[in-house]
Design a binder for these strands. Structure first.
Lengths: 208, 208
DNA sequence: CTACACCCTCACGCTACGTGAGGGTCAATG
DNA sequence: CATTGACCCTCACGTAGCGTGAGGGTGTAG
């Protein structure tokens, strides 16, 4: 009692072509075929596909996902904990974006009083995911890197937070200078190097 | 006092190549070049780039972004409100995913007691964004579609919510049947048609 | 005048599928 | 039992959004 491609596709919310593709690259393979060559998927494939979608959701490439899933000591629980952590970061990032939008809207309503006002926010915390990606990529020691990840989020993370707060304060102190002042730019660049990105929000409607 | 490509790239957290690309396709164009042909970006370009990144963040394609931004009656405020709405949905989706992870973790800790347990959650609210995309794509009447969007989020949205609750209840009622029972599948497919996607979470560790 | 960090324009490569083309399969129906 | 319609298959080329050199100018600090 297996699933056909279409059934699985509908179940998972992906296209049939996608399943064909995953089959082709060996990412999710039906372990059975009918006499006519039809793919037949079973529960195990379903679970595998779910894992794939999870990791994809987190921004990993298909090749990386394959590596991770094919790791013999792949620990589902650790992986899920990792998922959760990343999801939480994503959520925070989105919350930041929402706040950025709100501030921009507010600026617009306050009229042009906020001209030249520069707001900073994170568009680009994708670098954290880059980190994680690189760690998971190291097929050699997945668990170990998970450990480090834990340490990372608990200790270094706060340190990074503090550092960024410093930088933000530094920028705030320069806020009276024009935004293209070299000092300001230097500070912004420092900010970038520490993994946080600056975003300049618009100050007024464009409509010419 | 403009910005060079690299400066702008660092500011916005994108690569130089990306800026070249955006220039090539006319998405973000420096309105000036030095004698040597160097690109020189100004504040207007910065703002434009921010808009682009915003929309990109929301999943629009570069072509669509161009269309939207080049609309003469482009209303920044409406656009921002639209952003916010989408961001909120994303956030909710992520929250759902987090809950899904939590439930899975819990199932795992409860041992194998939850075998065959099927959990549903949204992997795929991307369909909402599809909707919005199609609306923004219609260059003809952007404002009008924004209006409809408002109506949508205020009235129809609740209706959809209710409908989905119904479907979920229906599925819950079938929970004692095996997950590949045709009745269950039919229900799941109905769910799909209404724009919500089903996700089957794994029930136990894989480690062979 | 020599480094070194930056700038330019091709132009080909890559990922993750979309989208037909051309052709079997199978359960229900006339 | 032949047909219809909804599936299934395998090529195979197309697309988006850049990455990544290749090959070569620029500009400013020492």
């Amino acid at each position: 009692m297996g699933y056909t491609v279409k059934m699985l596709a509908d179940l998972a919310g992906v296209s049939v072509r996608t399943l064909h593709h995953y089959d082709a690259i060996g990412l999710v393979r039906p372990d059975e075929r009918t006499g006519a060559g039809y793919r037949v998927y079973h529960r195990g494939d379903l679970e595998r596909l779910q894992q794939v979608l999870f990791f994809k959701e987190l921004g990993l490439g298909l090749g990386e996902i394959k590596e991770v899933l094919d790791q013999p000591d792949f620990d589902r629980r650790q992986a899920l904990l990792g998922h959760k952590e990343l999801l939480r970061r994503r959520k925070e990032r989105i919350e930041r974006l929402i706040r950025a939008v709100d501030r921009t809207l507010q600026s617009m309503e306050e009229g042009t009083a906020v001209e030249e006002k520069v707001m900073f926010d994170g568009f680009d915390s994708a670098q954290y995911e880059e980190e994680v990606r690189r760690r998971w990529g190291h097929t050699a020691a997945y668990k170990e890197s998970q450990e480090r990840m834990k340490d990372y989020t608990q200790a270094d993370f706060e340190a990074i937070q503090r550092e960024q707060t410093e930088i933000l304060k530094a920028i705030a102190a320069l806020a009276d200078k024009p935004p293209d002042d070299p000092e300001v730019l230097a500070e912004i660049r420092r900010m970038h190097l520490s993994g946080q990105s600056a975003v300049l929000l618009p100050r007024a409607p464009i409509n010419s």
